[in-house]
Design a protein around this nucleic acid. Structure first.
Length: 1027
RNA sequence: GGCUCAGUGGCGGAACUGGUAUACGCACAACACUUAAAAUGUUGCGUCCUAUGGGCAUGUGGGUUCGACUCCCACCUGAGCCACCA
């Protein structure tokens, strides 16, 4: 046989696999499914280096093994192609990002194909493809509809040199990542996604998934759920109160002052005249401070006194109220109560300004002396002193007791806070998905006439309705809320006719249907000719079905038949507004209304009692006051990026898109008047938050798809063909694919994505689950992570030091893809950081050569079925084979690829010594080798005269009895030290073992003149004589 | 400062649930083959000693145990993530 030459075989098999569609995942196949996922690459100009392909190789091995085990495997790949490096490159060179992206993806695709990864290339996706980001934008619109995307003025990081807003991750040590200029703060309106609304579920549901423990811990810490109490204090000499958040109310007897964040609304409000000037100066200064100044100042505490005092409920003490920037406005209530005896920051603050320090907890050392140094501030355990009713209690008991006490007294309220913040979703860059919203001045100023339809046995004079009327009229809207006929014994038709007769209904009308009024509203909408501006369902009734009771009058009030198609056409927008805690009308009615009318569904805070009490509810007012922000209608998606010559940032802090007037100026989809497009784009994390779904929506080569015949008839499938872009199924109708493939069975990725991408995509998935679009509440069943590969010498491979980057292209040429794959996996434990070594790579190649040479000259004995040894087969071979099959299989599952390869080397070293081996053993070994070195295994398989691909074979079973050793070397110990080894049967009993041990010459020598105290026998392992 | 992880030959690393520490590979050395080299094969390879045997070795110091790389306590070193989060 020829010498092993990877160049002759690797291309050949790659082409063969592609032709055979060996790696194609079939939707709805009968086999069990396996969805293996790796993080899709960013197509950088440098291409891949050897570190990038470690996780790809690992998952490829797992997926190839799964195929051999009879699974229908999906191993997809795509491009996460929006982002700064491409945009920067475009700015520098003037080449359009689309062109750059194309060039880079072509290059990396070539690299990946050369390595023989078994990706299903027919499902390749690209986040910058308008057909793709259409759906990214569509999901954003759903967030908007549900009130989970909102705009807020906030401080952003601003680079005065690049004249561009920076994301947090672009700020390194208070400086711009690109140019090193210190970053400033600037106020700007930003889009945010309300991930905090999902904080609790993101935390709790971690218990339902199989993620590495360290990944769960990191996410839990990032979410930072904490239970505590909001304590409200009276401010002496005013009518104001101040609320602070604390997790340690047990120390409240030791509270001696209160501190507000500079941004706190009370900071200026309560300050006495004498202190106004200094406080104003401090507050002003704090807002201007740059990140860098804050860091260089270190932790030295600064602050100013407001001249006011809060009264400590427990001690009656007057606690001075200060303002300081060590208190964060975004966490808790933006105010803290200072307990300098037991909090290091409070202690430093008290020292700085000479405030009183009281100790209320004693630790193990019983030291109660006043504190002089910060390290004496102790925490975490101890008993209460100087604390009234808490004295003597252990701190955790004290916490429980005082919480209940304060709540009972009405001083405080138990609350849960999170470290997690809402996700800032705006970027002022060109190369990202445009946010599909337009701004319309006319809609902002538009005045509506509201028609309010009250419910069964009700009136329009309740306090809540009166409040709404007042608020709307204050804004210049008209409000018509008539008393409907026969409210105690209503007839929906009659009430609808009453409204039709008495109210003016035109395109500026907003109808609010409250409770049974929702049904009345639908009857009205069935009949009108003009399209009204908005229809609002307010805790509305869709069916006369209620929790807890029956209401015969309501059942009788209507035929409960509605023409939803007609109704849907009668209003421009639908909104469903529901009281989360109202128990009589089942919540699923609101949900259903939301789906019927593709409405915005918003739940208001608890305790509104079906919108009866006159409480200010900003969520409600927001609905009538959207600042002229009009969502782009779904049918107009995608909002494509304009093709332009320049991507330079502007001077104003706006995205480069703002300068493209052709694109920015558009027509308002609501009123048809002139409007401006939103010029912010989405962050990188947007496209990657749902990409694992996009693979399932790909529609290419349908000829080889096994399709459920029912679906072809299904009208949903026809809609797909009307889509402008045929590449992706309509996300709303891809449910069957989702049901088949989800959840992702195994997702491997980097630890650096744990708190960003991994959390964000879990959030999006839960949101889509709530919309009923995906079948699972978690996207990923299992998550593991890989270690980084460092350059030789242990330094990081980085763009700034090109000599450290090891490109796989040359290595594939010199050593072959198989050698590179084997070495990548053998280099060290998969989850740990390891340094690259060229010598090691040569070792992997030698291993493959050894296999090649052996298979080239070995004589195969066709004598057994692999279980029973041939008469003249090498002794011990079946045992070793079954052991190896067991170990390699188990190690792949545990991602212990390095020891799997080592086991195969041991096997190879063994059979390499023989001239003839049973055919079955030689073939089984090739199959377990195949996932690691697919080209070589395939070639040798063919040389063994097989017509079919080795990947159509079955992963070998092992016989547990054979995988176990028959005889062992029994270890003979004296006092735990090994003195001799003897051959013995694996199941040798204690008595026999004792005899063996005492018969040993070496052991006898040690026992001369000694008394045996004890003998310990461990079955199958050792016998230990204690003397 | 917090959280998480790691520390074993010249090097990458192995060791199940506490049971022969150093598997496998690299590097190195000697030998064989060769005119020679490369390649390949064979053998050796923690360290010390009074050496057919024995002592000491898994970052350091203690502890539990018949027995500890493995469990517990304290410390040292390094890595990653977060960081004035009340």
């Amino acid at each position: 046989m020829n010498k092993y030459n990877h160049r002759d075989i690797e291309k050949k098999w790659q082409e063969f696999w592609e032709k055979e569609e060996l790696d194609k995942a079939l939707n709805f196949d009968k086999k069990p499914k396996f969805y293996g996922l790796i993080e899709f690459p960013y197509p950088s100009g440098e291409g891949l280096h050897v570190g990038h392909i470690r996780p790809d190789t690992a998952m490829d091995i797992i997926c190839r093994k799964r195929r051999l085990q009879g699974y229908n495997v999906l191993y997809p790949i795509g491009w996460d192609a929006f982002g700064l490096p491409t945009e920067n490159y475009a700015i520098k060179t003037g080449i359009h990002p689309t062109v750059v992206t194309k060039k880079n993806t072509d290059n990396i695709r070539r690299q990946l194909k050369n390595l023989g990864f078994s990706f299903d290339w027919s499902r390749e996706i690209n986040t910058t493809d308008p057909a793709y980001y259409k759906w990214t934008q569509w999901i954003f619109l759903q967030f908007l509809k549900r009130g989970l995307a909102y705009k807020k003025k906030m401080a952003i990081n601003w680079c005065p040199s690049c004249k561009i807003g920076l994301a947090n991750e672009e700020v390194v040590d208070g400086k711009c990542e690109r140019c090193g200029t210190p970053v400033e703060k600037r106020d700007k309106e930003q889009w945010l996604l309300a991930i905090t609304k999902y904080a609790d579920r993101l935390d709790k549901d971690l218990d339902t998934v199989n993620f590495l423990e360290k990944i769960k811990t990191q996410q839990k810490n990032w979410i930072g759920r904490k239970e505590g109490i909001n304590i409200t204090y009276l401010i002496d000499g005013t009518k104001e109160t101040i609320t602070v958040f604390t997790t340690r109310p047990d120390t409240n007897y030791g509270a001696t002052f209160v501190v507000l964040a500079p941004e706190h609304e009370l900071a200026m409000k309560i300050t006495t005249e004498d202190n106004k000037k200094t406080v104003a100066a401090y507050v002003n200064n704090a807002s201007k401070k740059t990140e860098e100044e804050r860091i260089t100042e270190g932790r030295k505490k600064t602050g100013v006194f407001t001249g006011r005092f809060a009264i400590n409920h427990l001690t009656g003490k007057k606690m001075p109220i200060w303002v300081s920037d060590f208190v964060l406005s975004g966490y808790g209530t933006g105010a803290v109560v200072g307990v300098p005896g037991h909090d290091i920051r409070d202690f430093e603050f008290a020292k700085e300004f000479g405030l009183e320090i009281i100790r209320v907890v004693v630790g193990k050392d019983y030291d109660t002396s006043p504190i002089a140094r910060p390290e004496q501030v102790q925490e975490e355990e101890g008993r209460m002193v100087n604390s009234g009713i808490l004295n003597g209690l252990e701190i955790h008991e004290a916490t429980r007791k005082i919480m209940d006490y304060m709540v009972e007294k009405g001083w405080g309220k138990k609350v849960v806070t999170y470290h997690l913040r809402d996700w800032i979703f705006s970027r002022q860059h060109y190369w990202g998905e445009p946010i599909p919203v337009v701004f319309c001045e006319k809609c902002k100023n538009r005045k509506y006439n509201f028609i309010f339809i009250h419910g069964y046995d009700s009136t329009c004079k309740t306090p809540w309705k009166a409040w709404l009327k007042k608020e709307l009229e204050k804004r210049g809207h008209a409000f018509f809320g008539p008393e409907l006929p026969n409210t105690a014994n209503p007839n929906v038709e009659e009430q609808a006719n009453y409204i039709l007769k008495n109210a003016k209904i035109d395109e500026d009308t907003i109808i609010i249907g409250h409770s049974l009024g929702g049904a009345v509203m639908m009857k009205i909408l069935e009949k009108i000719k003009t399209k009204i501006a908005r229809a609002v369902f307010l805790d509305a009734v869709l069916r006369p079905e209620f929790n807890h009771r029956e209401i015969p009058e309501v059942i009788a009030s209507s035929d409960w038949k509605f023409n939803f198609k007609k109704i849907k056409k009668a209003a421009n927008e639908f909104v469903v507004l529901a009281d989360k805690d109202f128990i009589i009308i089942p919540k699923d009615q609101s949900e259903e209304l939301g789906k019927l009318f593709e409405a915005r569904v918003i739940y208001v805070k608890p305790n509104h009692r079906h919108f009866s009490r006159a409480e200010i509810e900003p969520e409600v007012l927001k609905l009538f006051d959207d600042n002229g922000r009009v969502p782009v209608p779904e049918k107009d998606l995608p909002v494509e990026l304009p093709k332009v010559e320049k991507y330079q940032p502007t001077d104003t802090g706006e995205s480069p898109l703002a300068a493209i007037s052709d694109w920015v100026n558009t027509k308002c989809p609501r009123c048809g008047g002139p409007a401006r497009r939103e010029t912010d784009t989405m962050p990188n994390w947007a496209g990657s938050s749902w990409y694992y779904l996009a693979y399932l929506m790909m529609e290419k080569n349908p000829k080889s798809e096994i399709r459920n015949p029912k679906q072809i008839k299904n009208s949903k499938f026809k809609i797909r063909n009307d889509e402008k872009n045929l590449k992706y199924l309509d996300l709303r109708f891809a449910g069957d694919q989702f049901k088949y493939w989800l959840p992702v069975d195994w997702y491997n990725g980097g630890m650096e994505h744990t708190t960003l991408h991994l959390l964000y995509s879990r959030f999006w998935h839960k949101f889509l689950f709530d919309l009923g679009l995906v079948p699972t509440s978690e996207p990923y069943a299992k998550r593991t992570s890989h270690g980084v590969i460092l350059a030789e010498g242990g330094v990081k491979m980085s763009k700034s030091r090109p000599e450290t980057i090891i490109n796989p292209d040359d290595l594939v040429k010199r050593f072959g893809a198989d050698a590179l794959r084997v070495y990548e996996m053998f280099i060290g434990p998969f989850d740990q950081t390891v340094a690259w070594s060229m010598d090691g790579l040569a070792g992997a190649q030698r291993f493959l050569e050894k296999i090649w040479n052996f298979y080239g000259q070995v004589k195969l004995m066709d004598c057994d079925d692999g279980k029973k040894p041939c008469a003249n087969a090498p002794a011990g071979l079946p045992q070793l084979l079954h052991k190896t099959v067991k170990k390699v299989g188990e190690d792949i599952e545990a991602m212990k690829f390095n020891t799997a390869i080592s086991a195969m080397m041991i096997f190879m070293n063994f059979i390499g010594k023989h001239e003839a081996v049973p055919r079955a053993a030689a073939e089984r070994f090739l199959i377990i080798l195949a996932p690691f070195a697919p080209h070589l295994a395939e070639e040798l398989w063919q040389k063994l005269c097989h017509k079919q691909s080795i990947f159509r074979e079955k992963w070998p079973e092992y016989d547990p009895a054979l995988a176990q050793d028959q005889t062992i070397k029994l270890v003979l110990q004296i006092n735990g030290k090994v003195r001799d080894l003897v051959e013995a049967a694996a199941d040798i009993g204690e008595e026999e073992a004792k005899e063996l041990a005492l018969a040993s010459e070496k052991i006898k020598k040690w026992l001369v003149g000694k008394e045996v105290k004890k003998i310990i026998f461990v079955k199958g392992k050792l016998i230990n004589i204690v003397i």
